[in-house]
Computed example of a mutant assay.
Amino acid sequence: MALGHIFLPATVLVFFASLALAFDPSPLQDFCVADRNSQVFVNGVACKNRTQVTADDFFFTGLDNPGNTSNKLGSFVNLVNVDKLPGLNTNGMSVARIDYAIGGLNPPHTHPRATETLVVLDGLLYVGFVATDNKLYSKVISKGEVFVFPIGLVHFQFNNGTCPAVAIAAFNSQNPGTVRVANALFGTRPPISDGILAKALSVDTNVTSYIKSQFQ
């Protein structure tokens, strides 16, 4: 079956699953379209004047387009959160398309505000997450299969197949956030000192200094 034929049904399935697990605060009105121009800072995004809301505020196009995976990691994440789709505001969900080249990696990271449900549309992925007792839960999943990454836990996806892969991810937050483990340790501004990193990782400071240089 062509990818395009399964894209819409799979996306709808993941969206309904995300709705059932909505995590962000429930809305107290029909909708609260995000006002990108508001100077009001709240836990979320201020509402756009209802008289200015249009159908386009609830619409996004482009998830059918493959992402550019010609980078060091060989992966590309097209996240549709409240910043791209203002109608998601207060609805407790967002969605992403993830493309993987052969050998492509979505590196170890966390989503501090959301559980992630991943469904493979094409290809083969080795996926996993690490629990707080440092146990790894991992599995190889293929087209039509689903895997869940619990909120806040470090997880990853790796294309260990023989062809490019693509997946759709749904999150139970309008803004799940992403913290890449390597970037959080070695790519901060200002940087964490080599002494702290070396002690935490039980390595020499020359090692931490070299790794830092890869994130500049």
Rank of each mutant, 00 (worst) to 15 (best):
H5W: 00
F7M: 15
V12A: 12
F15L: 13
F15T: 04
A20W: 00
A22F: 03
D24W: 11
S26H: 09
Q29Y: 00
Q29H: 05
Q29W: 00
D30K: 14
F31V: 04
C32L: 09
R36A: 10
S38N: 10
G44I: 05
A46C: 15
C47I: 08
N49T: 00
R50A: 15
Q52M: 10
Q52H: 11
Q52P: 00
V53W: 07
V53A: 12
D57E: 07
F59Y: 15
T61L: 06
G62K: 14
D64L: 12
D64K: 15
N65I: 15
P66N: 10
T69H: 03
V80D: 12
V82Q: 01
K84H: 12
N89A: 10
V95S: 03
A96D: 03
A101L: 01
G103L: 01
G103H: 02
P108D: 11
H109V: 04
P112C: 03
T115C: 12
E116T: 12
E116P: 09
T117W: 12
V119A: 06
G123N: 01
G128K: 02
V130G: 13
T132M: 10
K135P: 02
S138L: 00
V140D: 02
I141S: 12
S142M: 02
S142Q: 13
K143A: 10
P150M: 08
I151Q: 05
I151D: 00
L153V: 11
H155Q: 11
F158Y: 15
T162R: 01
P164N: 06
I168Q: 11
N172E: 08
G177A: 03
T178Y: 01
L185I: 04
F186V: 13
P191W: 01
A198L: 05
A200S: 14
A200T: 13
L201R: 03
S202V: 05
T205H: 00
Y210N: 15
I211H: 03
Q214D: 01
